[in-house]
Design a protein around this nucleic acid. Structure first.
Lengths: 185, 185
DNA sequence: ATGCTCATGTAAGTCGTTACATGATTTC
DNA sequence: GAAATCATGTAACGACTTACATGAGCAT
C-alpha cells in the first residue's frame, strides 16, 4: 500500500499540485525510490479522494484538478511514517541471476558481472547529471531528497565494489572447481 | 517475469526437486533475493510445464511430483542470465519515507532513523545466523549463494552507515531551518 | 490414534504495467 | 495552423498476496 502514501506525501509537500504535476515529480525524483505510472497515479488520486485523505482544492484549464491534503490525510501520513513497519525491499533481479551463475560457463559469468558494473557506472553518471539539473533549495523535498540521493550514490558505489570483488572471487575459485568435476549441477 | 526464471534456475540446480522442496529453498535462501509464495510457486510450475521448459521426471508418495529442466528450459535459462537486460530494483519503502521526513518533527525523524538502524542490526544478526546454519558445500548454490550473502552483508553495513550519517545531517541542519520558518511545506 | 510434516492445489482481491483513448491550451 | 505540452481517464492483462481447502504418509 505504499503508492498510496507516496502520493499522499507528495501532495503534502506540493500543495495544490495536479495529477500531471505529481507525475513529473515521480519521473524526475520520487520515482527513483518508488515508481508510478500515469495510470496508477490517476487511479490512486481517485481512491485517496474517496477515502477523504486528499481533496480537490481548485480547478484549472484543460480539466486540471489541484489537490490538497486533508486533516485526515495528514494524520494518516504521519501515522504511516512513524508507526507502520517498513517493508524491506527484497527482490533483486541482478542477485537472482548471480545465484544461478554456476549454470553458465565462467567466461559468460565474468561477462555478466562486467556488464552489470558498466550499467552501474552509467547509472552513476545519470545520478550526477540529475544532481546537477535540480536547483537545490531549502525546502523539504530538496533537503531530504539530497539525503536520498546520497544514499543512491553510496548504493551504486557499494554495488560496484561488490561486482569487482565477486569477479575476482569467481576467477580464483572456478578453475579449481572445474578441474575437479564438470559439468556442475 | 523473473519468478519464472527463479523457479527454472532452482530446478536446474536441484534436479528432481518437488514444489515443496523448491518452496523450502525459497524460504531459507533464494527468497532473500526473490520471494515466492506457495500459491505462486505451484502456479508457475504448471505454466513452466505447459511451456515445455520443465517436466515431471518422477512421482513420489503423497502426490509428490519431481521436476527436471528440459533442453528448452536450459536454453531459456542461459538466455535469460546472459541476454535479458537486468531490471534495476527501484522500490524502497524506507527511502520513500525519508523523502517525507520533513513532514514529521525532527525528534520523530531521528526516532525513525534510529529505529531503522536497529532493524538493520537485527537483520545482520539473522544473516550471521543463517550463514552459520547452512552447511556450505562446493556445489553451485553454495558457491554463488555465498557471494550473494556477502552482498547482503555489505548492503546492510552500507545502509547502517547511511542511517548514522543521515541522522547527523538532520541534527545539524534542522535547528537552523526551523529557526528561519515553520512549519515547512 | 494423534499430531506433524509433506504435498498440492484453487479463489478472491490488490497492485502494477502497457496500451488505448481523448481533448484543451499554449507556443512558434 | 501545426506541433508540443498539458491533462485526465479506461481497459486488459499479468504478478503478487492472503486465505481457503484437502489429503497422504510418518513418527511416537
Amino acid at each position: 500500500m505504499s503508492l498510496r502514501h507516496a502520493v499522499l506525501g507528495l501532495i503534502a509537500e506540493l500543495d495544490g499540485a495536479s495529477g500531471y504535476d505529481l507525475l513529473k515529480m515521480f519521473e524526475i525524483s520520487l520515482g527513483n525510490v518508488w515508481p508510478a505510472t500515469q495510470s496508477q497515479l490517476y487511479g490512486e488520486l481517485g481512491k485517496l479522494t474517496d477515502a477523504g485523505l486528499i481533496e480537490v482544492v481548485g480547478e484549472g484549464p484543460r480539466g486540471r484538478k489541484a489537490y490538497g491534503i486533508t486533516e485526515a490525510g495528514r494524520t494518516e501520513l504521519l501515522r504511516w511514517i512513524t508507526e507502520v513497519p517498513v517493508k524491506p525491499a527484497r527482490r533483486d533481479d541482478a542477485m537472482l541471476r548471480v545465484f544461478f551463475l554456476g549454470q553458465v560457463d565462467p567466461a559468460k559469468a565474468q561477462e555478466f558481472l562486467g556488464g552489470q558494473a558498466a550499467v552501474l557506472r552509467e547509472r552513476t553518471e545519470q545520478l550526477k547529471a540529475l544532481e546537477g539539473a535540480i536547483d537545490w533549495d531549502d525546502d523539504n523535498l530538496s533537503v531530504y531528497g539530497r539525503l536520498v540521493m546520497e544514499y543512491g550514490r553510496r548504493f551504486l558505489a557499494m554495488r560496484g565494489e561488490w561486482y569487482a570483488w565477486a569477479a575476482e572471487e569467481i576467477a580464483e575459485t572456478e578453475p579449481a572447481r572445474r578441474a575437479v568435476s564438470s559439468p556442475r549441477t
